[in-house]
Nucleic acid binder design. Sequence first.
DNA 1: AGCGCTGGTCTCTTTTTGAGACTGCCAACC
DNA 2: GGTTGGCAGTCTCAAAAAGAGACCAGCGCT
Lengths: 137, 137
Amino acid sequence: MDGKIVNLKSKIEIYKAMTDGANFGDCPVRDVMQSINGKWSPLLVMALAEKPYRFGELRRLVPDISQRMLTQTLHELQRDGYVHREVFPTKPPSVEYSLTDLGRSMFSPLHQLVQWAERNHDAVRDARAAFDASSRA
Amino acid sequence: MDGKIVNLKSKIEIYKAMTDGANFGDCPVRDVMQSINGKWSPLLVMALAEKPYRFGELRRLVPDISQRMLTQTLHELQRDGYVHREVFPTKPPSVEYSLTDLGRSMFSPLHQLVQWAERNHDAVRDARAAFDASSRA
DNA sequence: AGCGCTGGTCTCTTTTTGAGACTGCCAACC
DNA sequence: GGTTGGCAGTCTCAAAAAGAGACCAGCGCT
């Protein structure tokens, strides 16, 4: 069941660059990962992958995000090129957020991770319960 | 170039569960994602996917993590069942951290995301530069 | 006239993170 | 035999990030 992780050496080199911060001065992978890895970023990307949403729709869709963090996360996603922001000059102006091509291309790997999480959340919950039980003992 | 994301409705349902916090009371995917999504968690999982490491080795491998966060993140990863912690009662006791089967099974999707980040960091950097330039204007 | 909706910003408080000193034990060095 | 250093952490305090919720202007509805 182990030994399945072979041929990683080369791939690990990627993360070595993450690791060794002072390397080239830009640490690309870690930089990009940070922007994906926010608390709300993956959730918003997943939501926008379905279809474009407006600000208030997202707010209602994700009830436990604060407006502050919604604004800020969308702004970061826009800055990094994942999300397109378009203002419609309707009577009360509305703003629509949608994924760019870059954002859509990120969706597949992100989606795989989400699927993994969905398949394995029982295992994680069990591990957590077992750990807590044994540390209380 | 768009319209490539089809048939997501069902998959999005997964994240809907994330979204609608008060649904079943447990929001499984979001819960698991949070534990994967920490600032240091993916980095440590990637490192440990290569081979087991000891505390101090990880510390040197990731120079810009504080001991505090290294301890804490490893503890969380252990609690959630991704990482196994083994103490060797040598003269100065040493502690080895390694991935569990669960941790190894998470490696593949995580790795794909890291690969995506590696392939697209130029695009992200460019988008960021363009955005910053246009917002300064 | 008052309410609610639009997409935000501003301020205040709480939580999380980071930096770094400190622990106890033992081994090697001078 | 006193100092130094590595081991795996913990503890404290300061800085950064996140959450809660008030507030803004403008328009429509009643």
